[in-house]
């Protein structure tokens, strides 16, 4: 059984269909990619999974449990964490506080103590040097890492990353790829939306392609790269120019 199972999700915005019978699944211990051109519905899919966007029909299951009726914070407690494409850091708080507040919310009886746990996460994401800096003063690349650290602080089962590499330097991008692989090896399920297709190809075990609100195809990196429909979805058709 996949950890995350999104089945037959349809979302209407007024007359427009944003998502049309979208189905996808994510396995524990693996990195899954969700790619597609701008406006295809990727972020909407994330909003559906985290409960920020109500669905017209369809369901979201986590480890077999139906999440569809749960509010966002209950889904978070069930183990879904995410980052945002448009940064949603807690801008007036320090980097450490950003991570700490998430760790405190998930303080379990026998879990780690929030303070040291947050510090360890900062260390792991190489953010220790900016721990005392206000989050809205960070350059975008590092602010994205803060969001990842914050999401990890909730000790999730499923991590949704919305364009985590955008704004990262090549070096940072490289270490992000390593981090994702490590996290997956540790048992975490990761679903990643990313425009840096080479990065996606490198780290993802499975890739779903979304275009015009529907899943166009899915498969391994090699299968996706060979698929002409995917190329068309990305680059448009040549005869289009007329």
């Amino acid at each position: 059984m996949p950890l995350l199972d999104v089945s037959d999700v349809t979302v209407h915005f007024g007359g427009n269909i944003a998502l049309d019978s979208v189905a996808l699944s994510v396995e524990a211990g693996s990195v899954t990619g969700l790619i597609g051109p701008n406006g295809a519905g990727k972020t909407t899919t994330f909003n559906v999974i985290t409960g920020l966007q109500p669905v017209t029909s369809g369901s979201v299951r986590l480890a077999g449990e139906d999440m569809s009726r749960l509010s966002p914070y209950k889904r978070a407690r069930a183990g879904i964490a995410r980052t945002f494409q448009r940064l949603e850091s807690f801008g007036s708080m320090t980097v450490r506080e950003n991570v700490l507040v998430a760790a405190e919310l998930r303080r379990g009886r026998n879990g780690p103590r929030p303070g040291p746990f947050a510090d360890a996460l900062l260390e792991r994401l190489s953010l220790t040097d900016v721990a005392g800096v206000r989050a809205d003063g960070l350059p975008t690349g590092r602010a994205r890492l803060v969001e990842i650290a914050r999401a990890l602080a909730t000790r999730p089962k499923l991590l949704l990353l919305d364009e985590p590499a955008s704004g990262l330097s090549d070096g940072e991008s490289e270490s992000l790829a390593e981090l994702l692989t490590e996290l997956a090896e540790g048992g975490l399920a990761i679903l990643i939306v990313e425009h840096d297709v080479p990065l996606v190809m490198r780290v993802c075990h499975q890739i779903f392609v979304l275009a015009f609100g529907a899943i166009l195809t899915s498969g391994s990196a090699a299968e996706i790269q060979a698929d002409t429909r995917v190329q068309e979805a990305y680059l448009g058709t040549i005869e289009g120019g007329g």
Partner: peptide, 11 residues
């Protein structure tokens, strides 16, 4: 500015 590069290169 256009993301569908092939389409726009046609014109």
């Amino acid at each position: 500015v256009e993301q569908f590069a092939r389409t726009v290169l046609g014109v």
